[in-house]
Design a protein around this nucleic acid. Structure first.
Lengths: 133, 133
DNA sequence: TTGCAAGGATTACAACTGTAATATATAAGG
DNA sequence: CCTTATATATTACAGTTGTAATCCTTGCAA
């Protein structure tokens, strides 16, 4: 129902994550933050910002001669959406095969197992789960 | 180590999954299989097959005037590679945040939970884990 | 007041993608 | 043998993406 048809590319995701971290920020602040993490030229970063605005992932308000940018989409929501899209693409939409693939390939940490365990426990408590939605 | 720099697009993944299912197959067989699942024209499917060959994801041998195609990359291996790439992109490479996101968004089924439980149990047996890498 | 630095807008450009159509070769059928 | 159906190869074409450079505007410094 919620229209999550934002198509954010790899490079754009890097920018979004910076902005989700920064909250409101000018392009200069975004550039500054990203020059630490990437090797992109400022121009490149500004291009990506512009594309994200056009896509509706960012909004801005003019502040003097600069713009203050802000994410107009929720981080968790976007993560969930792209995760679901990924699972659909690769694993027919199911979570378990994805996890199994990881486990089989040994690509996981004890923290991951702990997280899994936590999830399973939440949903194993008789009558105590919050999944009554 | 293993060079998994294959960049398989969304549409190409659909073709790969068909071929992984079919094993060795002519393009006609692949087309036939995919016309059930998609709305692509046969031409489109053959184009995708050609691109996958060029990318090295498929190999073939001539059989009369047809080609017999076969995946030249392992399904599980590819799944693991794209999964890792996905986690890198969106969750800084870590599995646990991905899982947490899923749980928070409620985007999973009871079958997933059952499968996760099984996985956790396998890896929670005291002294029985194989994560001593 | 005037030129410059800095920000935003426009343009660049090749590779990849989705989605095919057209061209070419050839085996099989009549 | 010639036509036809079919398979592969080549070409198409616009939208996306990565990665910027150039152009335009304007507030600020000199």
């Amino acid at each position: 129902m919620s229209e999550n048809s934002l198509n954010i590319s790899d490079a754009e995701w890097v920018v979004m994550r910076a902005i989700w971290l920064l909250g409101d920020a000018t392009s200069s602040q975004i550039v500054e933050a990203l020059e630490r993490d990437t090797r992109w030229k400022p121009r490149t970063i500004r291009t990506l910002i512009g594309r994200l605005v056009k896509k509706g992932a960012l909004e801005y308000q003019e502040q003097g001669r600069e713009f203050i940018y802000r994410a107009s989409v929720d981080e968790k929501h976007c993560e969930a959406a792209v995760s679901q899209h990924f699972l659909d693409r690769i694993f027919g939409g199911r979570l378990a095969p994805f996890i199994a693939t990881f486990v089989e390939s040994g690509n996981y940490s004890p923290a991951d197992i702990a997280e899994l365990k936590r999830i399973v426990e939440i949903h194993s408590e008789p009558g105590g789960s919050n999944d009554d939605k």
